[in-house]
């Protein structure tokens, strides 16, 4: 254990000084095989997608298994934070859903700087997310709205975010909790900027059903438990393509897009497998797989999933990095005050 940790630190320092150019993928694979496994803390994908991605990686690189630890953005980060606090090295790859976590991890010196072969091959808008090489964009999953087509007609369906607080949908709204879900946190920051604190009070008055993860509301809609709600474009697209009675609403006031990056903790016990895995996430093969789940492809070579618009066709509204750093915790506090839990 100590040896690995030491190796990780040395390797980290080595890469950080820029003394080494990128290691070739084959070389990485050899070293990764010796490490045997990679533990992936992930919030960007649902459990089953994450497991499938892990399996596909192992198919591509036999001998390296993926240990998937999936939780919501806040929870997965709190795990990593506890690991660090307790001096435990468990996570090899961290795919959170709240960029502020990555920023503070980087500032605290807890991330490995690395440069995967596929790093520069991403679609244009994803390239500039992190110029220093501490993380790479692995998910661009806009938060949109959705409705159950059995319960709501296309004409009735709201067209922008304020629909959620329209009293006509009282008791019919499905939400997720910013205190658990990282994407919902950044969405709440956006809502606060656009519509102020009253938005949350009105939302509360509408008596929404609040799940913990952003993946929960679309399932609630499909089940007919609620009529309209929020969700990630990917989840809604996937459910829609599977034949469920659900339709996407691209809010006119802008779908929320925050890019989600994947990083490697400086103390990762399997740093080579980790780099190999991140490189895989940035590959065409991974993008092909992601598209089948309704996710946006990271690579320009791969077309967006059917039934969903491509990123550049969507009207987007995104909170800035500063807004996120200063805004997420206060908006969670605001939410808890308003909703009581």
């Amino acid at each position: 254990m100590h040896y690995t940790r030491l190796a990780a630190a040395v390797l980290g320092a080595f890469v950080a000084t820029g003394a080494s150019a990128q290691t070739s993928t084959d070389e990485l694979y050899e070293k990764a095989k010796a490490e045997g496994e990679v533990t992936w803390y992930v919030a960007q994908f649902t459990t089953s997608i994450a497991e499938d991605i892990g399996q596909d990686f192992t198919n591509a690189y036999p001998g390296v298994n993926v240990n998937v630890i999936r939780a919501t953005g806040q929870v997965v980060y709190s795990r990593l934070a506890q690991d660090l606090r307790n001096g435990v090295a468990q996570a090899d790859v961290f795919s959170g859903s709240d960029q502020t976590h990555l920023i503070s991890l980087k500032e605290e010196g807890n991330l490995l700087q690395f440069s995967p072969e596929n790093g520069p091959k991403l679609r244009k808008p994803y390239l500039d997310f992190e110029p220093d090489g501490y993380w790479y964009t692995t998910s661009a999953n806009p938060t949109v709205m959705a409705y159950n087509t059995d319960l709501v007609t296309a004409e009735e369906a709201p067209t922008n975010w304020t629909g959620l607080v329209d009293p006509k949908w009282k008791g019919k709204v499905a939400m997720s909790h910013p205190g658990f879900s990282g994407s919902t946190g950044s969405w709440a920051v956006l809502m606060r900027r656009l519509y102020g604190d009253e938005f949350f009070e009105q939302l509360e008055a509408n008596d929404p059903l609040i799940g913990r993860s952003l993946s929960d509301p679309p399932n609630t809609l499909v089940a007919g438990e609620r009529a309209i709600g929020i969700g990630t474009l990917a989840t809604v697209t996937r459910l829609k393509n599977a034949g469920n009675p659900i339709e996407i609403i691209y809010p006119e006031d802008g779908a929320k897009l925050t890019l989600s990056g994947t990083a490697i903790p400086a103390n990762a016990p399997h740093p080579n497998a980790a780099q190999l895995f991140v490189n895989y996430l940035l590959s065409e093969r991974a993008s092909d797989l992601m598209v089948t789940y309704g996710l946006q492809p990271m690579r320009p070579e791969v077309a967006p999933p059917p039934g969903a618009k491509a990123i550049d066709e969507i009207n987007l509204a995104s909170p800035t990095q500063d807004e996120l750093i200063n805004g997420v915790q206060p908006v969670i506090e605001l939410w808890r005050r308003v909703f009581g839990a």
Binding site: T46, T47, S48, R70, A71, T72, F180, G211, R212, S213, S215, D216, P217, P218, N219, T220, A223
Partner: peptide
Amino acid sequence: FDMTEEGRF
């Protein structure tokens, strides 16, 4: 408990 958050009942 973890899986209930994704609504996979």
